[in-house]
């Protein structure tokens, strides 16, 4: 029993020492809560920011990352995940956090470009050689073409997919909404399975070999080429796509409670500096300031006509969300799950 007691005492002492050590080592720690495909990007950006912050202030900063589906991540922050900074896929997700009172309502005006330091767009990933000859949105509604996209009800990326298709059809049918709806209905009739998230859809297409074309974030498509083999897939850029603006914000309530506002604000501002913009372009996101990017990286982006969410066709996120994706909205009316 005495041996047991002394072991216990030693254990307690050890735990206390470890605790004391962790307190002594605690520099400023920032938690960046982000969405799925940004892991590689923020690994590079964090490294650059840590150096930059050290050289400017002499302080060390530790940056922790959490990644997941954009909607799920926003929910976690609302429920108390102590994010200093959120870098999510959709404006609507940060709006949710703002509605919960954690971020000031004017968040989108505090930073340049609608608080989006980078943009991306939707492209097609097809199998090598493009056996089905897919060139544009028209080709997706042809008979015998299987289209892979995640579910717009759960995935941020999938909403951009849907809206891009809508914009194309709207132009093609000269703003005739009945024909546009018909086009979208035919497109989703060609979708064999709706995954819940962008990464899941990529895995369905690339790993499980299902479908002829994947509607994907441009950065996801490039990453899939890098990770899964440029000899298996190729990227097709349609005639028209949508400008996706993944926004960033400092979580006011958290940084004020933790006393990390200065570093958190420096972090989101750092994303707009030439150094970060260069990294952004390198990781297949379209930089908001292309002048700072490496021309070689920029050359990979095909020039494509882009509509934005603020186009009168959609009238901003809130309107688009209510019309298309709300319970009983246009998507619910058009999409009939396959029953076979």
């Amino acid at each position: 029993m005495t041996r047991f007691r002394s072991t216990l005492a030693a254990g307690a002492a050890l735990a206390l020492t470890a605790f004391a050590a962790s307190v002594a080592l605690a520099d400023t720690t920032l938690l960046n809560v982000s969405y799925d495909p940004t892991r590689e990007l923020y690994r590079a950006v964090n490294e650059a920011f840590i150096k930059d912050w050290k050289s400017k202030t002499g302080e060390s900063v530790v940056i922790e990352q959490s990644h997941g589906g954009s909607g799920k991540q926003a929910r976690a922050v609302v429920d108390g995940l102590q994010a200093d900074v959120v870098t999510l896929a959709l404006q609507g997700d940060i709006d949710q956090i703002s509605k919960a009172g954690l971020i000031g309502a004017d968040w989108q005006k505090r930073l340049g470009n609608n608080a989006a330091p980078y943009t991306s767009t939707i492209v097609f990933l097809v199998r090598k050689g493009n056996p089905k000859g897919i060139k544009d949105w028209d080709d997706l509604i042809k008979e015998g073409v299987e289209v892979i996209t995640p579910n717009p009800k759960t995935s941020g990326g999938a909403r951009w997919n849907y809206l891009a298709a809508w914009a194309f059809a709207d132009g093609k049918f000269d703003h005739d909404e009945a024909n546009t709806k018909n086009f979208i209905q035919k497109l989703f009739a060609n979708v064999p399975v709706l995954d819940t998230g962008a990464r899941g859809a990529t895995t369905t297409f690339a790993q499980r070999g299902i479908g002829d074309v994947l509607l994907a974030w441009e950065n996801e498509a490039f990453l899939a080429l890098d990770e899964l083999g440029a000899d298996k897939f190729e990227i097709v850029v349609p005639s028209l796509s949508i400008k996706a603006e993944p926004p960033v914000a400092v979580v006011d309530k958290v940084v004020d409670a933790k006393g990390t506002r200065k570093a958190a604000e420096a972090y989101v501002n750092f994303l707009y500096t030439p150094e970060a913009q260069k990294l952004i372009a390198h990781h297949y996101y379209r930089p908001s300031d292309p002048k700072s990017a490496d021309p070689k990286d920029l050359a990979r982006f095909v020039d494509v006509k882009l509509v934005t969410i603020d186009d009168p066709l959609f009238g901003g996120w809130a309107a688009a969300q209510a019309k298309h994706f709300a319970e009983g909205g246009v998507f619910d009316q058009l999409y009939k799950p396959k029953t076979n």
Binding site: A76, V78, D79, G80, L81, Q82, A100, A257
Partner: peptide, 23 residues
């Protein structure tokens, strides 16, 4: 999450005392 989350029963109290249970 319902008990200790920021929107939950004890979340706001824990938060104001700097105690983090979930996440």
């Amino acid at each position: 999450v319902l008990l200790f989350g920021l929107q939950g029963y004890f979340g706001p109290y824990l938060q104001s005392h700097g105690i983090q249970i979930i996440f």
